[in-house]
């Protein structure tokens, strides 16, 4: 499934929920289900500190594809983190660098990606792209 297809899939899932409470309920569920973060990676090096909440992000490369593992202390943030990982996991560096991530806006969560929310999400996406760029440079050598 391409990034576009995956984003479309998420938009469809959320479009079935008309009430904001149902949408946030789903986000909370997604956040609660994101449990695969390995404790050894919970280091200051992997910490993205927002003013309001924290995000831990770890990335690795396998066969030219990038994988992510992340966690947050706030569940709503964690739910959005889960969606981002679902879209960007197992992609090439170029795919990650070029991903539009328009689905966040389409499902009515754009406010969480505003720099003024200071929840660490904007910095997290930047960091995901930084990892992609770093692996791209490494793979090119």
């Amino acid at each position: 499934m391409t990034i576009e297809e995956r984003e479309k899939e998420i938009v469809e899932e959320f479009s079935m929920l008309s009430d904001w409470m149902d949408r946030y309920s789903l986000l909370i569920e997604l956040g609660n289900d994101l449990t695969d973060f390995e404790e050894e990676h919970r280091s200051n090096q992997n910490l993205i500190e927002g003013c309001q909440s924290k995000v831990w992000l770890y990335a690795w490369e396998k066969d030219g594809l990038i994988y992510f593992m992340a966690d947050s202390d706030a569940i709503i943030v964690k739910g959005i983190v889960a969606l981002l990982i679902r879209v960007l996991n197992g992609r090439t560096p170029d795919e990650i660098l070029e991903a539009p991530l328009a689905f966040v806006d389409a499902i009515g969560l754009k406010e969480h990606l505003s720099p003024t929310r200071s929840n660490g999400l904007v910095a997290m996406i930047k960091q995901m792209r930084m990892y992609a760029l770093a692996y791209k440079t490494k793979l090119a050598r």
Partner: peptide, 8 residues
């Protein structure tokens, strides 16, 4: 988390 409560 306070962020979650405040957001909702």
């Amino acid at each position: 988390h306070p962020f979650d409560a405040g957001t909702l």
